[in-house]
């Protein structure tokens, strides 16, 4: 499944980039994030309770950031699994100044497998987009709070 979108963050590119790779910020902003720990170079251990509506599962795995080019872009690989299935994704996140603010563009590919793949297929794309909307919305809040 292809996933792409743009979001505006109320902070400079440099500040936004810092927020995006800060495990503490990400842990706060990622919907349902129970744990996000920097393990080694660009690799984060993650535990999330994610879901939409009544469908909810606990997932563990890792997020890997690579090709990090502050403050312009990085590549993110997500690989998490739980009893309701697994999610594997990879994508490129790009940042561009938009006046005082930053426009984030992301483009990637997501694979969903296991029990959640076979049911609720109609929700996958919207759920993925909802979660990115929530993530970047929270980062935007965080950015605006820290700026102002």
């Amino acid at each position: 499944m292809k996933l792409s979108g743009t979001h505006t963050i109320g902070a400079t590119v440099e500040r936004t980039f810092e927020l995006l790779i800060d495990p503490e910020v990400l842990a706060r902003c990622m919907p349902g994030c129970d744990k996000l720990e920097h393990r080694d170079d660009g690799v984060y251990d993650m535990a999330v309770s994610a879901g939409i509506g009544p469908v909810r599962g606990k997932y563990t795995g890792r997020v890997t950031l690579s090709d990090i080019q502050p403050p312009e872009r990085y590549t993110m690989v997500v690989d998490i699994k739980g009893t309701t299935g697994f999610v594997k994704g990879q994508g490129v996140v790009e940042l561009a100044p938009e006046g005082e603010h930053t426009q984030i563009t992301f483009e990637g590919d997501v694979q969903i497998g296991g029990p959640i793949a076979a049911v609720g297929q109609r929700m996958h794309a919207s759920a993925a987009r909802l979660m990115t909307r929530q993530l970047f919305g929270a980062i935007d809040k965080e950015a605006r709070a820290s700026e102002g």
């Binding site: 009544p54 029990p115 049911v119 609720g120």
Partner: peptide, 13 residues
């Protein structure tokens, strides 16, 4: 009609 199917499918607990 939403919760019970999800629980039955073990997608909600």
């Amino acid at each position: 009609h939403s919760l019970i199917p999800s629980m039955k499918l073990r997608l909600a607990a």
